[in-house]
Design a protein around this nucleic acid. Structure first.
Lengths: 180, 180
DNA sequence: CATCACTATGTCAGTTCAGACATAGTGGAG
DNA sequence: CTCCACTATGTCTGAACTGACATAGTGATG
């Protein structure tokens, strides 16, 4: 019954107790590279997880009109997350606006298309440089069983993705230069 | 005002007139590799595009309770699509269930995680072989300006994506084998 | 002659989600 | 002392989307 967003929250909580606000911050970075949610959605989902007994919380006095709620995984939540991790992922439909534009690119002016791809390439190269710096900060992969293994493995995926994407952008730019 | 789905429909219609049914078939393949929609959504969107004057149709007698509607782009629709193509894509949040599972993989048994990645790898390799066959059928890239340029360029993206993904899966499997 | 797959259009109910709105305390900069 | 950024919780509206339901003709297979 739990949605993928619910598991994303459980995955964050598996690394330590957090408030909804903290989870939202994690959903921007680093989890935001592969799953995102606004805080409104997180608070709603947290209430569902609470009703399902997968998380619990302790109220602590803090800023704001309400008490601060520090959430943690229950035994059920941990078990459910562990189970979900190795279930085959149902892939959601791939939706990529740039590729859709590419599909219709033959209608437009080659120069404008080339400029768009040059901008995309620059963005990918910037992200690649950032990821490479982050990778250097790890000195090789952490052992499996360490939570940081997850961070490193997802970073490797991002690294590989940015390289593939940059390569494709370069290929597109080449194609568009030849046709001028 | 037009949604991305609207442009996906316009992009299909730019290649020739089609019924809603035909568009839905295109949304499974080849457009489905980068944008998908069910027929219910397509009929709804088609009505919006019609109200906006971006498409028109001719009713033809055919099977079913209603007449068959053959849609085509209007001059406005073509212009709007051409304009959209070179506007910088606003990237929607990347959502990838496999990477999310990877983030939490440290909780699970290495053997089960490895099996999941082996399955993913097999799927990627199968798709890669299929794409390579399709690429061979083109004998090199069609000229820019030809609608098939769009098909070829998106295929190249798919090819590159599957290679990156397969490579990452292999890396993951290596990591999990070392730790046993 | 019956059944089934395909062509073809549409509605409806429910879910997900993004973005705006609403509220309020703490701590630091100027 | 004022203002601002940050911490912190939540609601609500509307858009996007999924999957089921509903209807009906054509043509091929058995």
């Amino acid at each position: 019954m739990t949605s993928t967003l619910g598991f994303a929250i459980l995955a964050v909580l598996a690394r330590g107790e957090r408030t909804g606000y903290d989870i939202a911050a994690n959903m921007r970075r680093p989890v935001g590279f592969f799953w995102t949610a606004g805080h409104s959605q997180i608070h709603t989902e947290l209430q569902k997880l609470l009703a399902g007994g997968l998380v619990g919380y302790e109220a602590v006095h803090g800023p704001g009109p309400q008490d601060k709620k520090v959430y943690h995984l229950t035994a059920d939540g941990t078990a459910r997350l562990r189970e979900w991790v190795t279930e085959p992922p149902r892939q959601r439909p791939e939706r990529d606006e740039l590729v859709l534009k590419t599909y219709a690119a033959w209608l437009a002016e080659a120069g404008l298309v080339r400029r768009m791809f040059a901008e995309q390439l620059a963005a990918h190269e910037a992200r690649l440089a950032e990821y490479e710096r982050e990778e250097a900060a790890f000195g090789g992969p952490p052992p499996f069983g360490d939570p940081m293994f997850g961070n490193y493995a997802t970073l490797r995926c991002g690294l590989s993705y940015e390289r593939h994407r940059a390569e494709w952008c370069r290929w597109m730019i080449d194609q568009l230069s030849d046709s001028l």
